[in-house]
Amino acid sequence: MTTVTTRTVTYQADALTMVGHLALPAGSDRRPAVLVGPEGVGLSDVERRRAEALAELGYVALAFDLHGGRYLSNPEEMLARCMPLLADPDRMRGIGHAALDVLRAEPRADLDRVAAIGYGTGGAIALELGRDGVNLRAIGTVNGLTTGRPGEAARIRCPVWAGVGSEDPIMPPAQRHAFTAELQAAGVDWRLAVYGGALHAFHHPPVDHTALPGVGYHPRHAQRAWRDIVGLLAECLPVAE
C-alpha cells in the first residue's frame, strides 16, 4: 500500500472557518488533484477515507467542509442550512472556490489537472464549479443531480458522471430528467448511472443521518459507485500523463 500523508487544513468560506482533510500520495512530484465534497450532513470520516483512498491511487485529494467543522446529525438543522445553500448557486460556488484555492495552493497539486467529485450537496457544489467555467478535467456527483441557472451548463468543459439510486425520493425521475436534459442541451459529455433499488445516500455507511426518510445504505451499489468514480478519474485524469 502506498504511504499517504494527511493533514487538516483550515480556510474561510461562507463566513465560516472550514476544516478540510488533505491527503497526499507518496513522493514529491506533482500529481493530479481531486476535490471531494460531502453529503449535506457535512464532512465525516467517510469522505476523509475517500480522499485517502484517492491519495493511495496517486492523487492529491482534498475532502472539503460545508459547515465550519460541524457535522449536522440533526436532520432539521441540516435541512435548515442546506436548503437555502442549494438554492443559492453563488454561495455554493463560493464554498467550492475556497476549497479549490486550498487545493491549488498545495505544491504537489498539478493545477492543470483537477477534478471535482461530491455527494449530495458536495456534488451540487462540484457541478456549480463546472457551471462557473472552472477548468476541470472531470465532475462526478452522487445524489446531487441539481440543475443550474439557465444557460450556465454550457460553461462545463469536461465530462460529467452522475450516480443516483432508482428509489431515491429526493432525486426522483423528474429531477433526473431535468438534470440530464440541461446537460444534453448544453452539449456536455454526460453519463448517468441509476443503481437499482438504492435510496438517497446509498453510498454512505449507516450513521445517524439514516433517520431521514428515503435515506439508506446499499453496500453493493456503494462499491459499484466508487468503482465508477475511480473509472471516471482514470479516464479523464490519469495519474501518469
Rank of each mutant, 00 (worst) to 15 (best):
L16N: 04
L57F: 02
R50M: 04
A80Y: 15
D45V: 10
L35D: 12
R31Y: 12
R50F: 09
Y71W: 13
M18G: 02
S73V: 14
H21W: 07
A55N: 04
L85K: 10
L43A: 08
A63P: 03
V34M: 07
G69T: 04
T8G: 09
E47W: 09
T17K: 10
L86I: 00
R93F: 13
D14I: 00
T6M: 12
P75S: 00
T5M: 09
L54K: 01
C82D: 14
P32T: 11
E56F: 00
G58Y: 06
E76C: 13
E77T: 11
P84V: 08
L24Y: 01
Y11R: 05
E77C: 07
A53C: 09
Y11F: 09
E77L: 08
Q12L: 02
D14F: 01
Y59Q: 11
V4A: 02
L72D: 03
A87I: 06
E39W: 13
E39Q: 15
P89M: 13
A53T: 10
Y59E: 10
V36T: 02
A26G: 15
G58T: 05
V60P: 03
Y11Q: 05
V41S: 14
A13Q: 06
G20W: 01
V4C: 03
T3K: 14
T6Y: 15
A80H: 15
D14C: 01
S28P: 05
P32L: 13
E76F: 10
A33S: 03
P25I: 00
G27E: 08
R48I: 10
E77N: 06
P75R: 00
P75V: 00
E76H: 13
P75H: 00
T17D: 07
V34F: 09
T17R: 11
Y71P: 10
E47H: 11
A87L: 07
R49P: 12
C82R: 14
G68D: 00
F64H: 03
H67Y: 06
P84T: 10
G37W: 01
E39C: 14
R91Q: 04
P38M: 08
Y71K: 14
A23V: 04
E77W: 01
E77M: 08
Q12G: 00
D65L: 02
S73F: 12
Y59S: 12
R93Q: 13
A15V: 08
D14T: 00
G42M: 02
Q12V: 02
A87Y: 03
V9P: 03
T17E: 07
D88V: 02
G58L: 06
R7C: 11
L22Y: 10
G37K: 01
R50T: 02
T6P: 09
R7K: 10
A55V: 05
R30V: 07
T8C: 07
A26L: 13
P32E: 14
R70M: 08
D88R: 08
V4M: 02
L85S: 12
M83L: 14
A61K: 12
G68Q: 03
L86P: 00
Y59N: 12
P32F: 11
V60D: 01
V4G: 01
N74A: 11
Q12P: 00
H21F: 01
L66D: 05
R30H: 06
S28G: 13
L43N: 06
M18Y: 05
Y71R: 15
V60H: 05
R50Q: 08
V46M: 13
D88A: 06
L79N: 10
E39S: 15
R31F: 11
G68F: 01
G20S: 04
Y59I: 10
V9D: 03
P32V: 12
V36Q: 03
L72K: 11
D29N: 07
